[in-house]
Amino acid sequence: MSQDTIIKVAGLSKNFGGVKAVNGVSFELKRGEALGIIGPNGSGKSTMINLITGFVKPSSGKVFYNGRDITGLSPDKIVNLGIARSFQMAKPFYNMPVYKNLIIPLFSPRARKLAGGRHGDRDESAIHLLEEVGFERDSHIPYKPAGSLPHGYVKRLELARCLALEPDVIILDELFSGMSMSEVAGILPFLERLRDEGKTLIMVEHRLRELFRVVDKAICLNFGEKIAEGAPEEVVQNEEVKKSYLGSEVVSGA
């Protein structure tokens, strides 16, 4: 394993009963790389993420983070090591104002440790984070109950929740799903900036055109197995990927 490998997945498998949701998948990710995971529905993408982040325990195989074996660690420990994730079905804390949703990650053991003794005003940090992901600062939206947010904003909030943890690796599970074209267009430059700032990104996506503007590497899963890996343009040209996922439609990257 080279020095700058940040995540290494080795022969990871997960069986749910007789179903092999993920079957012997391996890949490596260097610090600062952005990886896209694609594949048809039920191909094991979300399970893959749950396995890396500890929400699901693997049947076999290992996950290494910065050279350390993190297989089987509890999800809260893995988060505190620096791997933050979003959920496909993003659900805010409904009964709190929007900005209070971010107090939770800002108050987490990791965020408190990184901030040292001088965390300053968490409310102010929360508003600042919301602003970063595209909430208008002077609007009343941050103070409204999170249950009243439109879907696009819920997704942005989900992203801000990850960023509040100041993670080294950000894993986004279908961030774009349910967002309108203009909403995605609004958030893309922000993701590109994160990548350019050197954050390591893993994104599960179906919206390939947008995905390929961010990631510089992709893998494709099908029935839990890795069927292709490489630069995004190569992966979409792969015959097996075309057959199982893309159909006859040819998607050109970027």
């Binding site: 809260d76 988060v79 505190n80 959920f87 409904y94 009964n95 209070k100 509040a164």
Partner: peptide, 22 residues
């Protein structure tokens, strides 16, 4: 903020775990 974590667990415990809380 400590009490807020309690409320958050009720709303969505999965997101509280994902924020690094046991």
């Amino acid at each position: 903020d400590y009490g807020l974590v309690f409320k958050a667990i009720r709303d969505n415990d999965r997101s509280v775990i994902a924020a690094g809380f046991n």
